[in-house]
C-alpha cells in the first residue's frame, strides 16, 4: 500500500499526543480552578500555611525539572543513535520522576501525621485530589519511560523509535509544566 504523508505533516501518533494534551489542559484547568476558588475558605485547620514546606518542595520541583532536562538529552542521544547514552538518560529521567513521587509520598504522609487526612477539610480535599491527580500522571510517565528504557536494550534505533521517545517526552514535559503551575499556585502563593 502506498504510504500517504500525513496531511498536517505531523504523524498520527504525535498529533494524537498533542490533541490529548489539549484535553488534559482542560482536566487540570478544572482541578486548578477548584483549588483556587476554594483557597482560603477552610473552616477548620490545619491551614495550608501551617503545613506547606516550601524549601522541601522546591527541591523536589528542581528534581522534576532536571528530569525534563534529562528527557531532552535522551531524545538528543536517540537522534544521534547513541544507544548507551539514550538508555542512561531515559533511566535517569524515570529515576528522577520516581524521586519526585517519593517526595510527594513523604509529604502526604507527613501531612497525614499532622492531622490533615483526606477528609479533614476543604484544603485537604482540594490539595490531595489536585496534587494526587498530578502524581498519578507522573507515575504513568515513570512506567512509560521505564518501559522505553527496558525495550531499548535491543533492536534498531530507527525513526519510529526516535519518535516514540519524542512523544513520551511531549507527555513528560507537559506533566512537568503542570507542576510548575501547581508549585506556583499552591506553594509560592500560600
Amino acid at each position: 500500500m502506498s504510504e500517504l504523508a500525513p496531511v498536517t505533516g505531523i504523524r498520527n501518533r504525535k498529533l494524537a499526543m498533542w490533541t490529548f494534551i489539549g484535553s488534559e489542559c482542560m482536566l487540570f484547568a478544572t482541578l486548578i480552578s477548584t483549588y483556587m476558588v476554594y483557597r482560603g475558605r477552610n473552616l477548620i485547620g490545619p491551614y495550608p500555611h501551617e503545613l506547606l514546606n516550601v524549601p522541601f518542595i522546591t527541591v523536589t520541583t528542581f528534581v522534576l525539572l532536571m528530569s525534563s532536562l534529562c528527557m531532552v538529552l535522551a531524545l538528543a542521544a536517540m537522534q544521534q543513535g547513541n544507544r548507551r547514552q539514550a538508555r542512561f538518560r531515559l533511566f535517569l529521567t524515570a529515576a528522577l520522576g520516581l524521586v519526585f513521587l517519593v517526595g510527594q509520598f513523604y509529604e502526604f504522609n507527613h501531612f497525614h501525621h499532622e492531622g490533615l487526612g483526606l477528609s479533614r477539610n476543604l484544603f485537604s480535599s482540594t490539595f490531595y485530589i489536585l496534587t494526587g491527580t498530578h502524581g498519578a500522571h507522573v507515575l504513568g510517565g515513570v512506567i512509560w519511560l521505564s518501559t522505553l528504557f527496558l525495550r531499548l536494550g535491543s533492536g534498531p534505533i530507527d525513526a519510529e523509535r526516535i519518535e516514540t521517545v519524542e512523544i513520551a517526552g511531549l507527555y513528560w514535559h507537559f506533566v512537568d509544566a503542570v507542576w510548575i503551575i501547581l508549585f506556583t499556585l499552591i506553594y509560592l502563593l500560600a
Binding site: 500517504l4 500525513p6 496531511v7 498536517t8 505531523i10 498520527n12 498529533l15 494524537a16 490533541t19
Partner: peptide, 8 residues
C-alpha cells in the same frame, strides 16, 4: 480529530 486532520 487526528483522522480528519491527517487522513484526508
Amino acid at each position: 480529530v487526528v483522522t480528519i486532520l491527517n487522513l484526508r
